[in-house]
């Protein structure tokens, strides 16, 4: 479907790649924090596990689930974007991703902070799918806000 530019903007190659080969999808062991996010309307599910180190860094992350290409790839991309980042950085990235999907103006620095998850930017042209893209980020917010 290469002639369909909007569609390809949403389903970028990197999105399809993360959908087919999700990163950080191995369940954690040890002392981790865990939450589930669920969209009852389409059944999309994201399961998120985190280990935050003593110096408040995302030391380990696991994202699993089932659902559409957008929700699942977004979870995988998110894990890459926040791995090794501090709690404060993660909170900031979370805000920036939301702002990006709302098509708000972002500074270069804020855009850079988003990292690989910039790939989901094309979803903003498909408002009904923004919820799919934000499912994993909602789960992340729930866990991170405790710190």
């Amino acid at each position: 479907m290469s002639e369909l530019s909007d569609f390809d903007d949403m389903y970028q190659e990197v999105i399809i790649d993360h959908y087919k080969n999700p990163r950080n999808s191995k369940k954690l062991s040890g002392n981790y924090d865990e939450t589930k996010a669920h969209n009852p309307f389409c059944g999309d599910e994201i399961e998120l596990q985190l280990i935050i180190s003593e110096d408040r860094i995302v030391e380990k992350i696991s994202v699993t689930g089932r659902g559409c290409a957008i929700s699942q790839s977004s979870g995988s991309l998110m894990s890459d974007s926040v791995y090794g980042k501090s709690i404060e950085e993660v909170k900031n990235i979370n805000l920036n991703v939301r702002a990006m999907l709302k098509d708000e103006e972002l500074s270069d620095e804020d855009l850079d902070s988003i990292g690989d998850s910039y790939a989901i930017e094309g979803v903003k042209k498909f408002p009904v799918r923004i919820k799919c893209a934000l499912l994993s980020w909602a789960a992340l917010k729930e866990l991170i806000d405790k710190y």
Partner: peptide
Amino acid sequence: KVHPHDIGSGLDQ
């Protein structure tokens, strides 16, 4: 394998 929302968005194009 393919989720209905991906099918629906695809067909819409």
